[in-house]
Every structure is written in structure tokens, then in C-alpha cells.
């Protein structure tokens, strides 16, 4: 303890930086700027308006697909049903709505309660029987995909309505602003979630549940309810992200969701949110921007999708090594 007082000032500066890093993803922001500058210098046209908007649209898709992951990780869980629900959501508003002739909004009316019920069931079962949410979310993602795909058969048909594709086309505008609506949606969602997590009773209960589920029960937080809501919300977010992805790509591919499973995990973890907190969605936004920026620059330099996979894996390990540690076995005796 006395050593701290006598230490050279440089260590003090390090400490201040480390403290700042704990509060805010400083390092990630610096890396984001570095990646952007490298891109502008080495890739022609990278700094142009349309190019930047395209990167933002891709980041917005990644960010929107990571909302549920952020919330479930904050309550101390995990959500591996992202891919399944994304495809389920995407298929519902295209193929299924076409086959049943119920139109986009008809499908939407099935999607919302359906995702909420299935996701909520995961939260309930996982909390009630203390089952790793990992297993249950994987299973539920598969189930959701299956019950949407099952009746409709192998051939994937169906197109997104044109107004939907306008949401995320880089050349579209929002009320005169030169950005596509998806970016505006992302900004609004980010603000709403920041306010919810920081300044509402519900948000605080979510943090309490993640920080110490036993203490939260003693503090009269109904933690099972929190888990049910968190996982239901997460499933809904993934399904809606699927709708957004349809708007981006125009059609559906059963493998559409796969990349987003690890993108969502990587975005949350790289942003610096750890299981049970601390963390918030703003960090995930920074994580999604950083990942998208770095990937785009590297793809510009010939990075393949195989390299991307490896990079995401390595990045998850690296970020976890910095942020998350379990207790030593000695301390549990």
C-alpha cells in the first residue's frame, strides 16, 4: 500500500488511463480512428461519403444484431440463438408471408409474439432449472429456424418489399438527411438503450441481476422475471435484425444469420462488456464500429472470409483476456 505513494508519476498516468478505460472504451475508439486513417491512406476512395455511409450501414446491421447479445450477457447469460432467430425473422417476412398471403405486416404480427414467447421460454427454463443458457439458446435458435422453415420446404423464395430495401440502401435518405433510415434507427435505439440501462428502474434491475444474482434476490429483485424479459427481448431483437438484413440483401439465404452469431459476440466482448457487467450497449456500438471498420479495411487489402473467422476468434480471446477473469480456485476454498 505504501508502495503506491512512492511510485514514479508514470505509473500514476497509466493508472488514470486504466481507470478511464474501465469506464469508457477509450482504446477501442483510438483503434477505430487508426483503422479509419489507415483505410483512407491505403485504399483509394475509402474516405468518400458513400463509402463511409456503407461502412456505417454494415456496422448498423452488426450493431442491431448485437442488442440482444448485450442484454443477455449483462444479466450473466449468453445468446447463441441469434443466427436462428435472424433467419426465422427474415424468412417470416418474405417466404412465409408470401406463401400464406398475409403480407409483411401479417408476418410481422406473427414474428413479434412468436420471438417473445420462444425467447422468454429460454430465459425461464434456464433460470428455473439452472441450465447453461448456451445450450438452451442454441437449441431454441435451431427450433425457431426449424418451425419457420419446416412448413415452407427447401426452396427459398420471396423478396423483401421495396419500401423495406429502402431502409438500408446506402443511397437512400431519411427525411432529407443524406443517410439511410437504418442508421437513424440505430442512433435512436442506441440512445434509448443508454437511457434505459442507466436511468430506469428496469435497467438497474438488469444490472443488479447480472452483478450478483443471489444478492439481487435478497434485494427483492425478481431475477427470474428479469431473465425471462432479457431473453425474450433478445430473441425479438434478433428476429427484427433478420428483417433488417432482408432489407439490406433483398432476399433470404438460410445461412444469412450465421456470421451474426460471432459478430454479435465479438462486438459485445470487444466493446468491453463482460458477463454480468459492467458494460452497456454504447460499448457494443463502439465494438461493432471497430470490427466493421477493421474488417472493411482488411477486406480492401484482400482478407478472405476465412481470415475474418480467425480474426474474430483471436479478437474474442484477446478481449476476454483483458476484461474477464474468473476467480482463482484458491479463493474458492
Amino acid at each position: 500500500m505504501s508502495a503506491a505513494a512512492g511510485s514514479p508519476p508514470r505509473r500514476g498516468a497509466w493508472r488514470a488511463l486504466a481507470a478511464a478505460q474501465r469506464r469508457f472504451p477509450l482504446l477501442q475508439l483510438v483503434l477505430l480512428v487508426v483503422a479509419f486513417v489507415v483505410g483512407v491512406v491505403t485504399l483509394p476512395g475509402f474516405g468518400g461519403g458513400l463509402s463511409v455511409v456503407s461502412v456505417l450501414v454494415i456496422a448498423a446491421l452488426a450493431g442491431l444484431a448485437s442488442i440482444g447479445q448485450t442484454i443477455t450477457i449483462l444479466v450473466g447469460g449468453f445468446d447463441l440463438s441469434v443466427a436462428g432467430f435472424i433467419v426465422a425473422g427474415a424468412l417470416l417476412v418474405t417466404q412465409v408471408s408470401e406463401q400464406l398471403g398475409i403480407g409483411f405486416w401479417g408476418a410481422f404480427l406473427i414474428l413479434v409474439p412468436g420471438a417473445l414467447v420462444l425467447g422468454g421460454l429460454v430465459g425461464y427454463l434456464s433460470h428455473r432449472f439452472r441450465i447453461q443458457p448456451l445450450i438452451l439458446t442454441l437449441a431454441m435458435g435451431s427450433f425457431a429456424l426449424g418451425i419457420v422453415r419446416g412448413p415452407s420446404g427447401l426452396a427459398v423464395v420471396g423478396q423483401a418489399p421495396t419500401w423495406l430495401t429502402g431502409l438500408s440502401s446506402p443511397i437512400s435518405t431519411t427525411f432529407g438527411l443524406p443517410v439511410p433510415p437504418i442508421i437513424v434507427i440505430w442512433v435512436l435505439v442506441t440512445i434509448a438503450l443508454a437511457v434505459f440501462l442507466r436511468f430506469t428502474v428496469g435497467g438497474r434491475r438488469l444490472y443488479l441481476t447480472g452483478a450478483n444474482p443471489v444478492a439481487a434476490e435478497y434485494a427483492l429483485v425478481r431475477t427470474r422475471r428479469v431473465w425471462v424479459i432479457a431473453f425474450a427481448f433478445s430473441a425479438l431483437c434478433s428476429a427484427l435484425a433478420g428483417v433488417m438484413l432482408v432489407s439490406f440483401s433483398g432476399n433470404v439465404d438460410p445461412n444469412l444469420g450465421n456470421p451474426y452469431l460471432f459478430i454479435s459476440l465479438a462486438a459485445v466482448i470487444v466493446g468491453g462488456t463482460t458477463g454480468g457487467g459492467p458494460g452497456d450497449y454504447t460499448r457494443t456500438v463502439v465494438g461493432a464500429l471497430l470490427l466493421t471498420m477493421v474488417t472493411t479495411v482488411l477486406v480492401g487489402h484482400g482478407l478472405t472470409s476465412a481470415d475474418q473467422q480467425i480474426m474474430y476468434g483471436a479478437v474474442i480471446l484477446l478481449a476476454m483476456a483483458i476484461y474477464g477473469r474468473e476467480r482463482r480456485i484458491r479463493d474458492r476454498v
Partner: peptide, 17 residues
């Protein structure tokens, strides 16, 4: 049909755990 399989696996896994 094949397309049902994910749903069945998912349900089985949930029931199993």
C-alpha cells in the same frame, strides 16, 4: 422433410437438458 430437422433437434435438446 429435412427442413423440419432443426426444429426437432432443437426441441429434443431442450427436453434432454
Amino acid at each position: 422433410p429435412q427442413t423440419w430437422l432443426p426444429a426437432i433437434y432443437g426441441a429434443m435438446l431442450i427436453v434432454a437438458v
